[in-house]
Amino acid sequence: MTDDRDPLLQTLFAEAQRELDGEAFTAHVMARTRSQRYQVIAGWFGVALVLAACTWLLALPIQEFAQLIVQGLAITLIDLGDSWLAWLFSPVNNIAGLLVLSVKAIRIIRKKIIGASYAN
């Protein structure tokens, strides 16, 4: 079957196509766009309100959790006492330092492996 159309049906469709008066319709659409805008604004206001309430309610627990993490990361790995060595190694002699160094080492090893595979 091609895109050929039945002439009778085509005439009927053409006759059914009427120029409709658009003033009332257009006014209605524009009124709905306005109310839709107010709804969107109200929605964003609601979200902002909920976020503000959550921040206010959860501020203390979040702060406590953050403090716990900071304390955990600051735990000394090797006890070096109060000697100058303790001051010297203090940036790396803790869990945070160990984590940072581990990530760095993994990245370097990964780069070397990938570089080696490209060279081959």
Binding site: Q17, R18, E19, L20, G22, F25, V29, M30
Partner: peptide, 10 residues
């Protein structure tokens, strides 16, 4: 809207 309303409504 004014230009296209008739076409879309039809």
């Amino acid at each position: 809207v004014r230009r296209w309303q008739s076409s879309i409504r039809n």
